[in-house]
Design a protein around this nucleic acid. Structure first.
Lengths: 145, 145
DNA sequence: CTGTGTGCAAACTCTTTGCATAAGT
DNA sequence: ACTTATGCAAAGAGTTTGCACACAG
């Protein structure tokens, strides 16, 4: 309506605006990584995985930049860090309150369908402390049967 | 000195029997580490912390052996691994079903008083999978007031 | 004695950092 | 132009491993 550019559903521009709105310069790499991260629904991945994805997608970005970018996105509230197993950091594109399945062996993280779990009887929190977040991880293993 | 060794409630012997019963040779180091781990109630510590404790207690043990021993104890079911934050592995001397507080900033883990939390409405578990364990971590932060 | 455990140092994985170059506004 | 981001390689933390020596049974 205001300009002819609205006809183009350009994802790059959308990502750019989103980045700008959190104070990050929309560089090629950040736009590309944001595209990979937020295009296809909720995802859980490591820096290494995202890096590989970017390279396969023809976006030559360094692993260091992927790490930097993931942390910048996390600080901007676009991502959440997941502690499922020591020694690997998973980033979750869903920052809302939800829980996870973790498939042991496959090292795969899945969202638990919303409203799945409710937590009751939270005990007294120590003086001067408040709850920042409650992480629930349901660890699954393949049935031995 | 005396020959009446039965009168001595020797912790070394107790630890030795416990180790033997899980198929581990009761060596000096394993006995000492087991002593430190299980003497004073439930604990949550890293390999580094236990190593330092051992050295301070006059038990010269190498960090590598502490790691090995912690994993042997874990395999034997005497310990449980805790995934609270990436990049550090916490070992929990309480292997029963319970949940944890994690104090952000202090990096301290505390047990949540038993019966504190109940989890309802566990959703459908994917086909062929079963629940190995449910981890609940209540992350606390200092109140900003 | 015989085999297992230990210590050391080196290797390894994941992650962060310093600095010169490249890109954004 | 001026500033900020990127890439590379090197450093850093935490953890594992290989091998010679030491200890438990």
């Amino acid at each position: 309506m205001e300009s002819k550019q609205e006809h183009t559903p350009c994802p790059t521009r959308l990502a750019g605006d989103r980045l700008r709105s959190v104070g990050l310069r929309p560089t090629r790499q950040r736009i590309a990584l944001a595209g990979l991260l937020f295009a296809k629904g909720d995802r859980h991945l490591t820096a290494e995985e995202l890096h590989e994805e970017a390279v396969s997608a023809g976006v030559p970005v360094s692993l260091a930049t992927v790490y930097n970018t993931l942390h910048q996105f996390t600080d901007a509230g676009m991502l959440r860090v997941l502690a499922v197993e020591s020694s690997k950091t998973y980033f979750d594109t869903n920052t809302s309150d939800h829980q996870h399945f973790f498939i042991e062996g496959d090292n795969e993280v899945m969202d638990i369908p919303t409203g799945g779990i409710s937590i009751d009887g939270l005990p007294d929190v120590p003086e001067g402390m408040e709850v920042a977040h409650i992480d629930v991880i349901v660890r699954l293993r393949r049935k031995s049967s």
